[in-house]
Every structure is written in structure tokens, then in C-alpha cells.
Design a protein around this nucleic acid. Structure first.
Length: 201
DNA sequence: CTGGTGATGATCT
DNA sequence: GATCATCACCAGT
């Protein structure tokens, strides 16, 4: 069957539904203000695009788990996998506002304004003390201390979408699919800075 | 605000 | 060996 523009990957709905939800770990709680959807093996921007590897294995697994990866030699990013097993979709948690554990968050993030504490995917994992040891852990488990809680009300009219951040390559730059979602007017939403190809020095 | 760049290592081909 | 779902810090407008 031909695809229609109105057919959107189910993970987009999941992504939007995560805005406003509470995430708590390591003594810090944030309210999600920005997320990004990655739609399985058909999505050239996704880690799952080239098929299963050891790194992305959690994406191909059952829903209800965290996919955490390490990048740029120093940063962690966290995703939630809520799609059916084998679909390999995930939602990157890009930014949030700290609503509890402010002192702990500040101490983890060093010199940073409060608005920047969890403003960006790597800042958020540092704020919440999430690292590779949490890859594959169950969402909501008390063992790992990770909790995906209820939503604080979000006005549907305030949800925006736009290009995904940091992607490059054939068929995969950020503007190909506007699958980054955020709450309009939230100070903690990360600034969009287009990816630029760079050479190593 | 914008734009440039160094840091730093796991992962994949 | 190249790439990377980034950030902190700097200088300029």
C-alpha cells in the first residue's frame, strides 16, 4: 500500500506524550520539556538504521527499557524504548526542568545556570546521574532508581515540533523529519544549533 | 545572540 | 581510521 503523509510512525505519538512527564533518578527529578523521536530501521537518523549491533541492542528489545549510549568520548544520552519488540524505535530525552533535588543537580553540573541544568541530552544524564550502567534497565524499576512518573499537565496547543539536532549524512540531516518535540516557552528547551561537519585536529 | 573549536573514547566498518 | 543524537568556553556582533 502507498504511504500517505498522514501516516506517522507511532513513536511520534509516544514522544509527544512524554512531554511534561516526570523523570526521577539519583535524587533529582525533572519535568520533560523536549524530546526527539527515532523511528526504527527505516529512519536514517536512527542508531537502528543499520540494523542491530551490540550498542543498539536495547532498541530492538521489548518496551519499558532505557537505551543509554556514550558519545563524543565524554557524554551519555538516554532514550526510552516504549515501542513493541523488534520495532527498534526510541525517544531521546533531550531536556527538562529540575523540579526536585535542586542542590544535588547543581553540584553535579558544576558552573551552570539553573535553566541549563538539564538543558540538553548530555546535561540531563549528568544531572540525573545516568550512565552506561543504566543501559537496558527497566523504566520504573525501584532497583535502578529510575522512575518515569505521571505527567504534569501540558497544553496541547503549546507543543511544537522541528528539526532533530546534531544529525548529518546522506538522507539523515536534522531537517529530513521534524521529529523533535518541545513545550513552547519553556526556558529549559535546548537551543537549536545546526550540525556542522568538522575535521579532527 | 552567533559562530568557532578542543576535549576525548566507544563503536562500527 | 572515521564518526559521533555534545558541551564548555571563547571571541565577535
Amino acid at each position: 500500500m502507498a504511504e500517505r503523509a498522514t501516516d506517522e510512525p507511532p513513536v511520534l505519538r509516544t514522544a509527544r506524550s512524554l512531554l511534561g512527564r516526570i523523570v526521577g533518578h539519583g535524587g533529582v527529578t525533572v519535568r520533560l520539556t523536549e524530546v526527539e523521536a527515532y523511528a526504527g530501521v527505516a529512519d536514517p537518523g536512527s542508531h537502528a538504521f543499520r540494523g542491530p549491533t551490540r550498542r543498539n541492542a536495547v532498541m530492538f528489545g521489548p518496551p519499558g527499557h532505557l537505551y543509554v549510549y556514550f558519545t563524543y568520548g565524554m557524554h551519555h544520552c538516554m532514550n526510552v524504548v516504549l515501542s513493541p519488540e523488534g520495532e527498534a524505535s526510541a525517544v531521546l530525552l533531550r531536556a527538562g526542568a529540575v523540579v526536585d533535588g535542586l542542590a544535588t543537580a547543581r553540584s553535579r553540573r558544576g558552573r551552570s545556570s539553573d535553566r541549563d541544568l538539564a538543558r540538553g541530552p548530555a546535561r540531563m544524564t549528568k544531572c540525573l546521574a545516568i550512565d552506561l550502567s543504566h543501559n537496558g534497565s527497566t523504566i520504573g524499576s525501584t532497583g535502578a532508581g529510575f522512575v518515569l512518573g505521571p505527567a504534569v499537565a501540558v497544553d496541547a496547543d503549546s507543543i511544537r515540533c522541528g528539526p532533530r539536532v546534531g544529525l548529518s549524512g546522506p538522507g539523515g540531516d536534522g531537517t529530513a523529519y521534524p521529529w523533535r518535540f518541545w513545550i513552547d516557552g519553556e526556558p529549559s528547551v535546548s537551543a537549536y544549533r545546526p550540525a556542522k561537519p568538522r575535521r579532527r585536529g
